[in-house]
């Protein structure tokens, strides 16, 4: 079937089977490399994109259900300027291998969009299902807290 997707502000039409997971369309048809395959089961978060404002695991979204605005890691920067979360990730030197960080950043973005001032417990809860096997969790949480401050200082706009 022919599917039209709006990804990072641009429209794309691809011809794929309706059951094709969104992840493979983003990676293999659109050439994006932010969302990644980690489990294909909705359990790890590596494939996270933001679909209509919601952090969504693209490995379990079939093409037929991929609707509306999709943002990937590549689409977070604005006018060449990194999103405050990405900046904070660099300032806190978060990644080890970095493979999971797409899911961490995208999930944190959706979290802060919903709740710009999460407390520690809300960060833990909101990020709980995004796994990192290099165990960079401690710095991820520090980076989220740092980004919260930058965003607040900018008047709340990320």
């Amino acid at each position: 079937m022919s599917v039209t997707l709006k990804v990072n502000g641009k429209s794309h039409t691809v011809d794929v089977d309706a059951s094709t997971p969104l992840l493979y369309i983003l990676r293999n048809d659109l050439g994006l490399q932010g969302p990644r395959f980690g489990c294909g089961l909705g359990q790890c978060g590596a494939c996270t994109v933001i679909m209509n404002g919601v952090a969504t695991r693209s490995c379990i979204v079939p093409a037929s259900a991929a609707k509306g605005e999709i943002t990937t890691l590549e689409g977070l920067a604005r006018n060449g300027e990194l999103h405050p979360l990405q900046r904070a990730w660099i300032d806190e030197q978060v990644p080890q291998c970095g493979f999971c960080q797409n899911g961490q950043i995208m999930t944190a973005k959706a979290l802060l969009d919903r709740n710009p001032k999460p407390n520690d417990a809300q960060i833990r809860e909101g990020m709980k299902g995004v796994l990192c096997r290099c165990m960079t969790y401690y710095r991820i949480q520090a980076a989220i807290k740092r980004a919260v401050k930058t965003i607040a200082a900018k008047g709340g706009a990320a």
Binding site: G34, L73, Q93, V94, I105
Partner: peptide, 15 residues
């Protein structure tokens, strides 16, 4: 190596 890992520009073996 970190900036390209957080802005999505790094091409990994998996890519």
């Amino acid at each position: 190596d970190i900036p390209a890992k957080v802005d999505g520009s790094l091409k990994w073996a998996v890519d």
